[in-house]
Amino acid sequence: MSMVQPVLDRLPQQYRAALQQHSELLKFAIVGAVTWFVDTGTVYSLKLTVLQDKPLTARFLGVLLATIVSYILNREWSFNTRGGRQRHHEAALFFTVSALAIVVTLLPQAVALYVFGLRVPHVSAPTQAVSNFLSGQIVGVLLAMGFRFWALRRFVFPDELEPALTTGRAA
């Protein structure tokens, strides 16, 4: 019995059924929220200290750290009933999908900075900071999250595992 089951048992049947039907997506979204905070904390820690003039480098490092955390949490929790690949092959595919997702994450911020010129000295530092947050932390992360969910289910964790195969993994 999972830790979530007592909470689910208290919900009205229609909500319980919807949550159970979409539990994988819900878990993925929770992992996404956790890794968003990892990413955001890393990005702003770096941008406010050692990488003040390098917002894309800070973004890359934040996404990289969040991707490592994401693999662990998604493997052991979000997609713990899926698999179909040997662990090293699965990890290689996960990091390949995530590398593509890094590009998806960076694109909106790069467009804002270099196509629309929303960077110092063309705009004020606060304007660049708001633009970086909206284009990188909101638009980029949401686009990459949608891409990752689709690609992880399709390529990395393609098969539903038999219940006996998931007993050794975290629920």
Rank of each mutant, 00 (worst) to 15 (best):
F37P: 15
M145R: 10
E76M: 02
G41A: 12
A171I: 08
L143Q: 13
Q109S: 01
H22F: 10
P12R: 13
H22A: 11
L152Y: 09
I138M: 04
F95E: 07
T127M: 07
L11Y: 13
L25Q: 11
V141G: 05
Q109H: 05
L61Q: 13
V63Y: 05
A91C: 10
T105L: 02
H89L: 13
T40W: 06
V31G: 08
V139R: 06
Q13A: 11
A92L: 10
E90S: 07
E162Y: 13
H89M: 14
E160H: 11
G146M: 14
A58K: 01
K27I: 02
G140M: 07
Q128R: 02
A129P: 01
V38E: 12
L11S: 09
L8Q: 06
Q5K: 10
L142I: 14
V103S: 03
L113A: 04
L46P: 05
V156C: 02
N132S: 04
G117V: 14
S135L: 05
R154S: 14
G140C: 10
V69P: 02
Y114Q: 10
F94R: 04
I72P: 02
D9Q: 10
L152E: 09
L61I: 14
R59H: 08
R87F: 12
S70V: 00
P6E: 14
T40R: 08
R75W: 00
K47Q: 09
L134K: 04
H88A: 12
L152M: 14
V130D: 04
R119H: 06
A171C: 07
G32V: 06
G168W: 08
L118Q: 02
S45E: 13
W77C: 01
T167M: 15
K27H: 05
S2N: 08
S98P: 15
I102P: 06
L51P: 03
V141I: 13
L142W: 14
T96V: 06
V123G: 00
A99P: 14
N80D: 06
L65V: 11
L64Y: 04
F28C: 04
W150H: 15
A91G: 12
A144G: 15
